[in-house]
Simulated scan of single mutants.
Amino acid sequence: MSDVTFNFRVDEDLKKAFVSTSTSLGWNASLLLRNYMRQVVDSGGRNVPTSPLTEGEQLRRQEAVTYGEASVMLEGLTVPQDAKELARQFVSGELELGDYAAARHGGGHDR
Rank of each mutant, 00 (worst) to 15 (best):
residue 86 L to S: 09
residue 57 E to T: 08
residue 54 T to S: 15
residue 40 V to M: 02
residue 64 A to I: 09
residue 93 G to D: 08
residue 14 L to N: 08
residue 107 G to I: 06
residue 44 G to Y: 02
residue 22 S to L: 01
residue 78 T to Q: 15
residue 76 G to L: 07
residue 8 F to R: 08
residue 89 Q to N: 12
residue 79 V to A: 06
residue 88 R to Y: 12
residue 27 W to Y: 11
residue 80 P to Q: 05
residue 56 G to R: 10
residue 107 G to M: 03
residue 65 V to D: 06
residue 53 L to Q: 06
residue 54 T to F: 00
residue 44 G to K: 02
residue 79 V to M: 00
residue 105 H to F: 08
residue 106 G to W: 08
residue 72 V to L: 06
residue 56 G to D: 13
residue 34 R to Y: 08
residue 3 D to L: 06
residue 8 F to Y: 14
residue 98 G to T: 14
residue 90 F to V: 07
residue 73 M to K: 15
residue 21 T to E: 12
residue 95 L to P: 03
residue 48 V to E: 01
residue 75 E to N: 03
residue 9 R to C: 03
residue 38 R to V: 00
residue 95 L to M: 14
residue 18 F to R: 00
residue 28 N to Q: 04
residue 9 R to I: 10
residue 12 E to P: 07
residue 73 M to C: 09
residue 45 G to K: 00
residue 37 M to C: 15
residue 25 L to M: 09
residue 95 L to F: 12
residue 18 F to E: 01
residue 32 L to T: 11
residue 46 R to F: 00
residue 6 F to T: 10
residue 103 A to C: 04
residue 59 L to Y: 03
residue 56 G to P: 00
residue 54 T to M: 02
residue 111 R to S: 14
residue 64 A to H: 05
residue 24 S to Q: 07
residue 100 Y to F: 15
residue 34 R to E: 14
residue 111 R to A: 13
residue 47 N to A: 05
residue 90 F to A: 02
